[in-house]
Design a protein around this nucleic acid. Structure first.
Lengths: 102, 102
DNA sequence: CTTATATATGAACACATATTCATATATTAA
DNA sequence: TTAATATATGAATATGTGTTCATATATAAG
């Protein structure tokens, strides 16, 4: 399923989603383009912190950005990203009362 | 999409997949049940390390296990886990030549 | 019982990284 | 040009965590 070449890239991408702050940032721009400052304001985070995280999300192609005047507009890269998030949300949401005797 | 209550659980689960060793372990038992020792042997890892990682994967319900004699047999929890992995593999595999033309 | 095998666990260390602070870069307006 | 606004970046630090080693627990056989 995964060759060694893609293994570290795969882990890198998952690890980026493994931080609540980055997750919030990604979720914040999941369905619409948002400026850096707006993300910081909405999530009550420092501009610097948001920018640092967006840089990492950008490097993993989880978000894309474009300049709009003085602002930089970020949004989730594609539906693929949304699908991964949605699937994991469903996994986490599953309650396992008897740990599934499958 | 995600309430605050599930946010940390979501991040925790992603973070677990963000380590190459844990990913290899999970991939190793993705399509069939495998004993701890067999995983360690196949991936050339110490038994202790594999057990530590399996404990974490278990806590996140990414794998399930059952005793079989002296061995503990582990396998991926369900198809949901496989779907998440498959989706992310596809994301990582996407080469974006035009993405750089900005 | 003892012995062997398989797995789990606690502690310690080494390394990675999220956050803050200060500062740099870029764009727009005057 | 200068000033204001928006974002990016480098350094330092504090916290988190993957790994190793030693040891404990559990099952099976003699």
């Amino acid at each position: 399923m995964v060759d060694d070449g893609h293994l570290s890239a795969l882990a890198d991408t998952f690890r980026l989603l493994g931080d609540t702050t980055r997750l919030r940032i990604l979720l914040c721009c999941l369905s619409r383009p948002v400026a850096v400052g707006a993300i910081a304001a909405e999530l009550d985070l420092s501009q610097s912190l948001v920018s640092h995280h967006l840089r990492l999300l950008r490097a993993a192609r989880l978000v894309r950005h474009q300049r709009q005047g003085k602002s930089m507009i970020y949004q989730a890269a594609d539906d693929h990203v949304r699908t991964v998030l949605q699937d994991m949300v469903e996994h986490v949401g599953e309650i396992a009362p008897d740990e599934h005797a499958r």
